[in-house]
């Protein structure tokens, strides 16, 4: 395979980068970050919030029944 035939590849025209490339990229980045934050919220923040809420409800029940709020383990 003569090299010059393959070197014709370099002469193939490549169209310029689309004008809207940056805007589209920015939009795509924002979508991706939003999705990441939603996943973070679902996997990290919400379980912690739920656990704290259940703990508070249990504490309230305990306070009502036994008159004492359960102490947190340190």
């Amino acid at each position: 395979m003569p090299t010059d035939l393959l070197e014709q590849l370099a002469r193939l025209d490549v169209p310029p980068t689309p004008v809207a490339f940056d805007d589209d990229l920015h939009e795509r980045l924002n979508r991706s970050l939003t999705a990441q934050h939603v996943v973070d919220l679902g996997l990290r923040a919400l379980p912690v919030a739920a656990i704290e809420f259940v703990r508070a409800v249990c504490g309230l029940v305990s306070l009502t029944v036994a008159g004492k709020f359960p102490e947190r383990k340190k």
Binding site: F21, L25, L29
Partner: peptide, 22 residues
């Protein structure tokens, strides 16, 4: 563009590249 050969796929791939970079 050189690897994919059309503008639509090249645009999609190039954006994917920068998304991965980020």
């Amino acid at each position: 563009f050189r690897l994919l050969g059309n503008e639509q796929d090249a645009n999609d791939a190039a954006q994917e590249v920068f998304l991965r970079l980020f």
